[in-house]
Design a binder for these strands. Structure first.
Lengths: 206, 206
DNA sequence: CGATAGTCAGTGGCTGAGCCACCTGACAAC
DNA sequence: GTTGTCAGGTGGCTCAGCCACTGACTATCG
């Protein structure tokens, strides 16, 4: 038993370095500002002053972001935001899914769907109403999930859902499914993230 | 034709930064010295002097090696050589994760954790008690999740968690985190899948 | 004798000021 | 129009130094 944390001992508690936090913070900043590929970040001196850290530390944070492919730093120019890898790595991984037990894939997609539902519940209120307000017609699985996906926006979860959908398709129409979908839509409309996620439990027959 | 490399034009010739060369050089040094996992590199001050560079630059080189997983730098201890990844179970798409906005990865991992928690809540009752019964000590994020993972068993979700963990690490210890972990463990012990999943919402600070 | 608390040397983390190399864009000279 | 020059802004790197953390050693206490 080499490094068994041994229920008997407290975990080591490793503190994050300042430049790591900075890197995360700047990454969030890129997101918040809506910067896209090619856009320039403020100069190091200015960023350092605004964030209240030394230029050396800020520079390390940028270097970290660069080795992770998030930005590109050019001498004499500045730090440029990099377009995320165009070719999705997910498809390659998708191929191996066919060989897995169906139950595993079902459980995984249910988790992803729950995450999407939760995210959708946090979307703008008017958008939620526009996409999901009841109109008296029966909800279909595919249509409902298209709406939820629109609300949740693009992201890792959406890509995972695409990859998993091929091997864990949605259920056929049935009274029970319609009930679930109504409950799901209702929870998302109310903005109740927890309830929305819970509704997905067993949605695929897992 | 914006930036046609056009055999007619010379390549831009981007110079390697000093700290990049240093990183490569040190990596070779590890190889040449036959250092293995756990071995310590010479202290920064000494290495910097021997290599004829400033300590700041050498430190950046070590940081670069660390983000690439070659070494592990510990405050107050030194730079330790890391054993290369034991199992190759790392899906190809994991590499692309680094370039994604942090928020996306965080949300995705939260969804995966919720799925794992839900699965764990359905595990055998005696196993749940064995792994998660409170013992009066503070729970750490990593240890608690190891237990949940054991309960949930291997599967797609577990692999996704592994892949995501590197880019969306768990939170540092704090009172709020401990409360969440207690609530999570309690829900899993009760076999309450929905509650267990809900507890994961925002667990990573998303 | 064993366990505990205090001490201390060695290590990485971070700072601040400063100089240098590099890139760009504007402008003058041709 | 083309070319050469130059100034301003940007990141790369250095130096010297202080601080925080770790681990081992050493008293001290029961």
């Amino acid at each position: 038993m080499p490094d068994e944390p041994s229920a008997r001992r407290l975990a080591p508690l490793r503190r994050e370095r300042l430049y790591e936090s900075l890197a995360a913070h700047i990454s969030d900043f890129i997101e918040a500002q809506g910067l896209v590929g090619g856009d320039r970040l403020p100069p190091e001196r200015q960023l350092a002053a605004e964030l209240g850290v030394s230029r050396a530390t800020l520079s390390r944070a940028l270097a970290a972001l660069e080795t992770r492919g998030r930005i590109e730093v050019r001498h004499g120019v500045g730090a440029l935001v990099r377009e995320p890898e165009p070719a999705g790595g997910v498809p390659a991984w998708e191929a191996g899914l066919a060989a897995r037990p169906r139950a595993e894939v079902l459980v995984a997609r249910e988790a992803v769907l729950a995450g999407l539902a939760r995210t959708a519940a946090g979307a703008d209120s008017s958008m939620r109403v526009a996409m999901l307000a009841p109109d008296g017609r029966q909800r279909s699985f595919d249509h409902t999930w298209r709406c939820v996906r629109r609300l949740a926006g693009d992201g890792l979860l959406a890509e995972l859902d695409d990859a998993l959908a091929g091997h864990a398709p949605g259920p056929a129409d049935s009274a029970e499914v319609h009930e679930r979908l109504d409950a799901l839509a209702d929870a998302v409309l109310r903005g109740d993230a927890a309830a929305a996620a819970t509704t997905c439990q067993g949605m695929l027959g897992g």
